[in-house]
Design a protein around this nucleic acid. Structure first.
Length: 379
DNA sequence: CCGCTGAACCGATGGCGGTT
DNA sequence: AACCGCCATCGGTTCAGCGG
């Protein structure tokens, strides 16, 4: 059983008062109470833990003082819960600057960036002649480390970012965010890519960025990438977040992220002509066609198919209808071979406002398609 | 005040399986 | 290929206590 004081201050005051009243320090008091050492009394005085009830009672008897507390049954410790809580960044910076000075503080930051072990850093500081309480300093160091990782030092900026679908799940005390980016998976895991992340205000978007000394962006299986987010961030089990990343940060461009090969070719040419690639990546799942371009405030959804049989037109018709329904504000095009569409197909595409562009997929088909798109948008 | 240590806890990482 | 559910293990961080 433990004694729970009203506040840490009251607890500290009680132990100090007892020492004063009895004219004894922790050493003598511990001996009197038959304690193994005086460590416990020190911890109680420093409010690291809430005190054992029997000890408080004996101290009350000894000193004649009355303590104000409630009794906690079957609870080992009520004051300091066994839950890992990171020190706020500002507090950590304050403590470290005050204790080690600006110069050594920047050196500490360097150690953190190099992902040095916290104990190693503490020991290095000791080797400089500093003396300090591990309990506080290592926590402060841990705070610096995590604050960097959690993007607490960055501003949320989604300029130039690709937007991907992420899935959140609980995973033994932390959230696991997974997202699909097939081609990048192998490259990033080969590079042993470390990342930090930053979450926007309404917790709907997570931006990741490469960070030395960050956490690993690891592969979940053959296809998915994933990373952990601590439970201190209010995400939800089995929910979705948008995962944002700037391809440039990772040494890629947005066109590299285009999944379909023909669409990627088209995207390259389109960029040269002043089109912009829509940040939300087209996948088979979001029915956003093969690529979405932006041009003069228009969003242009393009589906590309090399099919030559007429049956293929039937199912493309269904596919683009789905795209029209999901993204009614977009302007839709279908790039395909000549002679695939019958007259009734043409009427159908016209009805659902999708413009077919026929090409031969040879020579410079990309620019010819883009010519067509530019022209049809201007009218 | 300070420093050390064992252990609890949790995050990171490696998987597996299955469905759409 | 994307989506989803879950497990096991390992090792780093933090806590609580002991003691200089």
């Amino acid at each position: 059983m433990r004694a729970k004081f009203q506040s840490k201050e009251e607890q500290r005051k009680f132990f100090l008062d007892v020492k004063k009243a009895t004219k004894m320090g922790s050493r003598k008091l511990s001996r009197l109470l038959d304690l193994k050492s005086r460590g416990g009394l020190e911890s109680y005085t420093a409010c690291r833990t809430s005190p054992e009830l029997s000890i408080v009672k004996k101290l009350e008897e000894l000193s004649g003082l009355k303590a104000n507390y409630e009794i906690i049954h079957n609870n080992k410790n009520v004051m300091v819960k066994r839950k890992i809580v990171t020190m706020p960044y500002e507090e950590a910076e304050n403590i470290l600057r005050k204790r080690f000075g600006d110069m050594h503080y920047s050196e500490i930051l360097k150690f953190i960036e190099q992902d040095e072990n916290l104990d190693d850093i503490a020991n290095k500081l000791r080797s400089y002649g500093y003396r300090f309480d591990n309990h506080i300093i290592v926590r402060a160091l841990g705070s610096l480390k995590l604050s960097r990782r959690f993007g607490l030092l960055e501003k949320f900026d989604e300029m130039g970012c690709a937007v991907l679908d992420g899935y959140v799940q609980n995973s033994r005390g932390s959230f696991l965010v997974r997202f699909s980016l097939g081609f990048l998976r192998q490259k990033l895991s080969a590079k042993n890519c470390k990342i930090g992340f930053i979450i926007n205000d309404d917790y709907s978007k997570v931006k990741i960025f490469p960070l030395k000394g960050g956490k690993k962006l690891s592969a979940s299986d053959n296809r998915l990438l994933r990373f952990h987010i601590p439970t201190r961030f209010p995400l939800k089990h089995n929910s979705r977040v948008k995962v944002l990343l700037n391809p440039k940060d990772f040494g890629y461009s947005l066109t590299d992220f285009v999944q379909d090969e023909d669409a990627r070719k088209l995207a390259h040419k389109a960029l040269e002509r002043g089109f912009v690639i829509h940040p939300v990546r087209s996948t088979t799942n979001n029915a956003m066609g093969d690529i979405v371009l932006e041009y003069k405030d228009r969003k242009i959804l393009i589906e590309i198919t090399r099919f030559e049989k007429q049956q293929a037109a039937n199912w493309k018709l269904g596919q683009v209808l789905l795209q029209r329904i999901n993204y009614p504000s977009f302007t839709n095009f279908l790039i395909l071979n000549k002679g695939v569409l019958s007259k009734s197909h043409l009427r159908a595409f016209d009805r659902i406002v999708v413009t077919p562009i026929t090409v031969d997929f040879g020579g410079d088909w990309e620019n010819r398609a883009l010519d067509f798109i530019e022209k049809s948008i201007q009218t």
